[in-house]
């Protein structure tokens, strides 16, 4: 499955990565080679094989519905780039 620049552009947009034109060309080359390598998968017959998401056949454990966390806002916001009145600040969101 050939990779085109439009694919890289679209992925960069979805992943919110700014990519310059030069970089885009470089990524097309690198990613194409990676995908060529990945395409070996297509030669394998996997008819009837169930996908495996986790290496162990374990099931989800459930947590008791208890409040175990306390307010740590100050500690958590110490590593935040922009806060005011306890809120994280971002450029204005237009709905």
């Amino acid at each position: 499955m050939a990779l085109e620049e439009s694919h890289v552009r679209r992925a960069a947009h979805l992943a919110r990565l700014a990519v310059s034109d030069d970089q885009a060309n470089g990524f097309v080359d690198d990613l194409s080679r990676i995908l060529d390598m990945v395409d070996q998968l297509q030669s394998l017959d996997t008819e009837g094989v169930a996908p495996l998401a986790h290496p162990l056949d374990a099931t989800q454990r459930l947590r008791a519905d208890e409040v175990t966390e306390t307010n740590q806002r100050d500690a958590f916001q110490r590593c935040a780039p922009a806060v005011e009145n306890g809120l994280y600040l971002v450029p204005r969101v237009v709905e």
Binding site: V38, L44, T46, P51
Partner: peptide, 8 residues
């Protein structure tokens, strides 16, 4: 596809 191969 990769997940199926993972099982194999």
């Amino acid at each position: 596809k990769a997940q199926k191969v993972r099982r194999l």
